[in-house]
Design a protein around this nucleic acid. Sequence first.
DNA 1: CGGGATCCGTTACGATACTG
DNA 2: CAGTATCGTAACGGATCCCG
Lengths: 221, 221
Amino acid sequence: MAKSRSYRLLCPIARGLDAIGDRWTLLILRDLHAGPARFTDLQTGLTGIAANLLTDRLAKLTQDGLMTKSDGQHGAALYQLTDRGRRTRDILFELALFGGGQPAPEDRVKPGNLRTVATTLGAAAARTALPDVGITAELRVDGEAISLTVRDGAAEATYGSATQPDVVLDTSYDALLKVSEGEITLMDFATTHSSIQVNTPGKDQQFMQVMQQILEQFQQV
Amino acid sequence: MAKSRSYRLLCPIARGLDAIGDRWTLLILRDLHAGPARFTDLQTGLTGIAANLLTDRLAKLTQDGLMTKSDGQHGAALYQLTDRGRRTRDILFELALFGGGQPAPEDRVKPGNLRTVATTLGAAAARTALPDVGITAELRVDGEAISLTVRDGAAEATYGSATQPDVVLDTSYDALLKVSEGEITLMDFATTHSSIQVNTPGKDQQFMQVMQQILEQFQQV
DNA sequence: CGGGATCCGTTACGATACTG
DNA sequence: CAGTATCGTAACGGATCCCG
């Protein structure tokens, strides 16, 4: 593992950056917040990180106690966040809020998978106050499934299908970006850029309420 | 100006990192949140950044509209944040919360100046709810002055002396780090690691209330 | 002395190829 | 699938020099 440059400052901000400030590191954490992932899952989501760099980063994150490596099915290692690693979530969310306001040139591409969507929605949902809502939803974004559950005031979003979802929402990454950046309204998003399938009658009201609260997180100027 | 590597992803997190993810950039912003600064002020606070790198980073931040350069007294240029640049404050604060939980090896040194303290306290203060408090305080941390004002529910901390402070608190960087990281209690901090001078009788109560709310921000596990 | 610009050795990154 | 190995290139770090 190549040792990364350190600022060697006592300042907590500098110490934080020593742990997660290296190139790619925050994007790796971003994808891990969507749930455990294999090496290849990460490599795909990061669109073109060199394999050796990914190896380096995973080693450092593991050594620093932000992540663990465990053996999954048939030799496929699984990487997942530790409790300490999960504490980077709000950093990522603030970064997303800021980055959403940055101009995006034309040559930008979609990430290789949409784990980032699960992370961002999950972080936003965790900031909402949803006392009496109990719901399991599946979002299909450009065909990729994201599971969103809210129960007992706690919210969680993971990459992958939901089991027995009350509601399934079908939409696109483009539309999600647009609504989160205020280019289209929530109403417009829900009606013309999404289609919804209700498995548990009545739950669609709760779901829309949740989505509204999530997306409102992005509106704070 | 050397062009920085871009992730070229639509993802807001990646876009944010394209703007502020380069080495040193977040630390520059950190110091600028404490108020306008000259080239040398920044170079000092960053303890050993190469001059050409600082030049590069300032140029990129200016070009991206996060910062402006203006002429100060006798040829000394002044750099300061734009509104957009100020939106990085919560990223820095979340980073500080996270970084405070990271172990700090022995060989770490104090930054060359304590602008970072003004930034961190200011960001923490901005998150508190302080409706009916009006106070101007000066913190002297290892001899460096930081001005903290709270008025009409809004808080601000800048590097430099306060004009006619109601209260002056004398303390050390070490003590501030310890209390923010939970190694000592607020009471311990206030009594044995600080000395307070009250210019406006009665304001010390309000001040302690403010300090408590600020430092409580760091206790959230 | 503040505010850089220039130069150059070192280090990390990025792309490709290769292996268990 | 999950990495390791190699190598050219780009960014960083330190020093020196320049200019008002």
